[in-house]
Design a protein around this nucleic acid. Structure first.
Lengths: 213, 213
DNA sequence: AGGTTAGCATACCCATGGGTATTGGATACT
DNA sequence: AGTATCCAATACCCATGGGTATGCTAACCT
């Protein structure tokens, strides 16, 4: 059964091999961490073997580096794309907050990978360089968005750069807290936390229990 | 030289053996991470061999668990102790902020360990339980401190629990950011970020460039 | 078609380090 | 003192998995 087959099986394009390996690596590193991810598992998850990995990457470290750079670029692109779509200030902020909160709770892979990156950045200079660049770019994107709101007349309790740092770090901190203690840090709580800080920084009095006015 | 010695070398008390191993393990896990820490290195750093480790702990996982619990208790004690010493509200806040900022930049071991704990909590239920408990206790301690300020008449833009969550997560986020990008997140920046958020949440106008009054 | 190359599969190597079994000497007990 | 016990040192085991060398076949060349 399934005996001889008609001729040669077509070969997977190198580009796709690389993409599938990278994608499998992202899942593996996020789920098991760098050390506990096995190259053979990653390769099989992508439908190949270790040979494919060493044919497309220099080794485990290099594969991790490729994952890091790929995600870094993706993150920055997402951020930059989001800046454009701003509507009414209040609504835009509320929507963004909701989106951020949902991504934290519904896409744990992202947070896990971020933690893995951060942990390795602590010890490896190469990783630190890339992660540092990514973080700076993210903060700058946030700062840019904040500046636009400021230009529209929203008062700020701090300059855009500091405001961006605050929002960025608060978001990361909330993400970490959710991962460590999902039960007491849910989507709604994250929304409230971000909303409260933004409201306070924008010198907008906290919502008076019901809709204002 | 150093030839025969007078008789038996006294044996190190078991309590001290355990303490020294634990302390060496803290340093190792913080510096190299769990996976890249070798039991033999830890043992030698403490002045013993692997035998001492397996005599005092169940194995590598158990040693990590012991480190986690020990640090968890220490963190909670520190937090609780700090609550007592509040003087003038404004000064107390400024002092606390300065202390937190300095600890982040001057004691990287703490942040690194926190990251390691968080990363493992993501995948291991046991670790997640302990880390979750620790985090909740920390937030409650902060909430308690916030409540005291609120009782003294400091207005709050959010309830103490949410305020504590915000401050706690912002602190952790800033710590992570400092580790990943020490150059652009220094002590002063951390102080400003924390100060700005506290000022905003307490509905206190931001410092007017120079001393107020 | 025959030959060459490119690229993944397969088989193998071996350093690493967690875990275990055993030993040896100090402490406690009688 | 003699004996039992405790506890860390030592020696050893071996599963693991990153890395490498080789094989094999599809795609490319001419």
């Amino acid at each position: 059964m399934a005996d001889d087959p008609g001729g040669p099986v077509p070969r997977t394009p190198r580009e796709e091999v690389r993409r599938r390996l990278l994608s499998a690596a992202v899942r593996a590193f996020a789920e098991h961490g760098y050390a506990d991810s096995r190259l053979e598992d990653i390769a099989h998850a992508a439908g190949f073997t270790k040979g494919a990995v060493y044919s497309n990457f220099g080794g485990k470290r290099d594969l991790f580096g490729a994952v890091l750079r790929e995600r870094s670029d993706a993150e920055i692109d997402t951020l930059l794309a989001r800046i454009g779509e701003s509507a009414d200030p209040a609504d835009a902020v509320a929507d963004t907050v909701r989106g951020v909160a949902r991504r934290i709770t519904e896409d744990p892979e992202r947070g896990r990978l971020g933690l893995e990156f951060a942990a390795r950045a602590t010890r490896d200079a190469q990783t630190r360089d890339v992660v540092g660049r990514m973080r700076r770019a993210q903060r700058e994107a946030v700062a840019e968005a904040v500046s636009r709101f400021a230009a529209r007349g929203v008062p700020l309790g701090a300059d855009p750069g500091l405001t961006a740092l605050i929002l960025h770090c608060l978001t990361n901190g909330l993400s970490m807290e959710h991962l460590a203690d999902p039960g007491s840090v849910d989507t709604e709580t994250i929304e409230r936390a971000l909303g409260a800080v933004i409201a306070a920084l924008a010198s907008v009095p906290p919502p008076d229990r019901e809709e204002p006015q």
